[in-house]
């Protein structure tokens, strides 16, 4: 079943054309890795899917379960089930993780005409997901990402993903800044969340993360287009040969 369809997507930032005709179809249950040299447009693709206001789409469409994502604002896309694990998660001083997560979850539930979670239900859910990612107890009372180490921030992204249960999860350079232990915990979390109803896009420079999160397809993005598609062997090949052939 088609979960995400990107057709002939063109997008620019500050007047500069970055995406030059992306075509990509992702079925439910699949993991797609997107690799490519610096500046190829990998992060632009995730920004455009999530609706970042800096990016302008000049052509093409993005459908999530058949719905037109480009006509929705960022929060509607999120409530429809698009989740971005940010490369650089924002710090939000003064807003506690509990308050942040409860607001996010309840806004999503309201959108889907579901009742608000009670305090008890919410805390139970937090505890369960925290345990899954081996996160400390104090973290819930801290302000969102404030003073978190690089590894804690990435774990927190996966924690939020577990709480919100998206249908499309985009991991943007989730491996950057992670030591091997943190990488394993984060990858375990992602694998546990994998199901036949959701799909993942894993954006990465390196093959390393793909040892843990095994992709069904690997795409090479270069100069705003997908120039090659293969299986996980393509990632191994790229690790060895680099991106020279695509520059």
């Amino acid at each position: 079943m088609k979960l995400l369809e990107i057709k002939n997507l063109h997008a620019s930032v500050a007047g500069k054309q970055i995406l030059k005709g992306i075509n990509l179809t992702i079925n439910a249950g699949e993991v797609h890795a997107i690799m490519g040299p610096n500046g190829a447009g990998k992060s632009t693709l995730s920004a455009v899917i999530t609706g970042h206001p800096m990016y302008e789409v000049s052509e093409g469409e993005i459908l999530l379960n058949g719905k037109d994502l480009l006509s929705m604002n960022p929060e509607e896309r999120a409530r429809e089930g698009v989740f971005l694990s940010f490369q650089y998660p924002a710090e939000i001083p003064g807003v506690s993780m509990v308050n942040f997560m409860r607001t996010a979850l309840n806004e999503k539930r309201k959108y889907h005409n579901l009742p608000q979670l009670s305090a008890t239900e919410f805390l139970r859910l937090m505890r369960e997901k925290k345990a899954m990612l081996a996160m400390g107890d104090k973290f819930a009372n801290r302000a969102v990402n404030e003073g978190f180490s690089g590894g804690e921030k990435k774990k927190n992204e996966i924690f939020q993903m577990a709480m919100l249960q998206p249908v499309l999860q985009i991991l943007d350079e989730t491996d950057s800044g992670l030591d091997i232990d943190a990488l394993r915990i984060v990858a375990d979390g992602v694998n546990k969340l994998k199901s036949q109803d959701n799909a993942s896009i894993v954006i990465t420079h390196y093959q390393r993360l793909l040892d843990y999160i095994v992709p069904d397809f690997v795409h090479v993005l270069a100069d705003g287009k997908i120039v090659e598609t293969g299986t996980k062997d393509l990632a191994l090949y790229l690790e060895e040969k680099g991106y020279v052939a695509y520059n």
């Binding site: 929060e75 999120a78 308050n99 979850l105 939020q160």
Partner: peptide, 27 residues
């Protein structure tokens, strides 16, 4: 208001308006 923080909150499903309120109250 911090635009990065606002987008981050919107990406989690929080409306722009609610996100602005939360940042002001926190401030």
């Amino acid at each position: 208001l911090d635009e990065n923080a606002l987008f981050y909150m919107q990406q989690r499903g929080i409306s722009r308006q609610a996100a602005e309120r939360m940042l002001i109250v926190a401030f």
